[in-house]
Design a protein around this nucleic acid. Structure first.
Lengths: 219, 219
DNA sequence: GTAACGCTGTGAATAACATCACAACAGAGA
DNA sequence: TCTCTGTTGTGATGTTATTCACAGCGTTAC
């Protein structure tokens, strides 16, 4: 069922396709069809790429009608998450960013619930924020085990990131979404996805500037 | 000075190198040197890649001592941002995420100040959050012009993203950091960087699961 | 002075990713 | 039934990104 060699990027796009299709459902019948170029337009890609992605997960369409939306959603769902699997998430760091993430994910992806938050601030201990209880980092092992958590979000300052990562990995977490601007050292079997907002903003600033230059030149 | 064909990824890594080096300064003398493999270890890359990145921006090291940290910082700085250039940033959407971003960037990157926030909520109008004043989206043209803003951050719900994007682009913004999970339509000369946190979390969940399976198999 | 070391700079090789282009085909229309 | 249309599925091709591998060199040690 699960093929080993599947690219990071393909998984990301599949998740994107799913969200786009889910949003589309209310507007149409579930047994609607969609063409690869339509889906591509909705997600800002090309038809060929959509077709190749669906090919890699073994989903077939119909040359005249396109892809059945309902079946495709099920197919992607089965591929991305085994049905009925536990997918509880832990959050480390209940600062500004952590709270925003709690709010964001809690009402947006009920399938990936953040069930526990960790922080070093004793003030927060046992408080419930956005329906999520705060624990001390010392309780990591116990709480992660109890909720069978496999996925962690790192939203602590850079200086604390490696420590909390080690605790999470020790407790059995095998996938991390890291917002701290540091490169985390983890065992080879732990997956890390980095989101570096500062880096992204600087990229934008750089290319925004380029555009201005080009405009001036073009004038 | 600015070469046209410079990859997205290289810019991102340069920004990363800069931050790593800045953090390193207090620990050592400014006239310290660093080897490509050391920098690579700090950012989770390879020495060859670091060397190639520095080569593309025309920075040279010394075969025995490595790269001069101070000079390298200046060089990257000059490359990424022309000295003394205006780099004001506008934020659209003062919800949970927007506020977290305000806090995050305001105290972390004083070189890229968020000088104006926009929201449709009349309650927020003229309030000052994290030192940043809130405006109505109707005032976009005026405010963006007044502060000479080139960079925008989209932190509004998906449904509102395209509208606020159009307003920003109209007002003269040429680079966008987009947190909304939609593909923005913009003119070809506007740069868009997408951060899709939900997609990233689903990627992590997917690969975390894979690891668990592998472990079970390996047992 | 000179030999030995270990790093830089970089062409060449490779890998990862995306697009092209077209045969095969399902359905619509006559 | 037969043709025509426009899409799928996919090998071939192109493009971009990264790693390999090594010549050349600055420095140190003697």
């Amino acid at each position: 069922m699960l093929r080993i060699a599947i690219s990071d990027k393909v998984i990301g796009r599949l998740s994107l396709y799913r969200r786009i299709l889910e949003r589309r459902i209310p507007k149409s019948h579930m047994d609607d069809h969609i063409f690869s170029h339509e889906l591509a337009a909705l997600c800002g890609g090309t038809g060929a790429l959509v077709r190749r992605d669906l090919m890699t997960i073994g989903f077939s369409g119909n040359p005249k009608k396109g892809y059945r939306v309902k079946e495709l959603l099920n197919w992607i769902g089965n591929y991305l998450n085994a049905p009925e699997e536990e997918r509880n998430v832990a959050l480390a760091g209940v600062g500004n960013l952590g709270r925003a993430l709690l709010a964001h994910f809690t009402y947006r992806r009920p399938k990936l619930p953040i069930v526990a938050a960790f922080d070093t601030d004793a003030q927060l201990l046992n408080r419930v924020i956005q329906g999520c209880r705060c624990f001390s980092v010392q309780q990591m092992d116990q709480v992660v085990g109890q909720f069978n958590i496999r996925v962690g979000i790192i939203a602590v300052p850079a200086a604390a990131a490696q420590d909390v990562t080690d605790r999470m990995v020790n407790a059995g977490i095998t996938g991390l979404l890291n917002f701290a601007p540091v490169s985390l050292r983890v065992p080879a079997d732990v997956f890390v996805e980095n989101i570096d907002m500062t880096m992204s903003l600087e990229k934008v600033a750089f290319f925004a500037r380029l555009n201005v230059k080009e405009k001036e030149v073009a004038r």
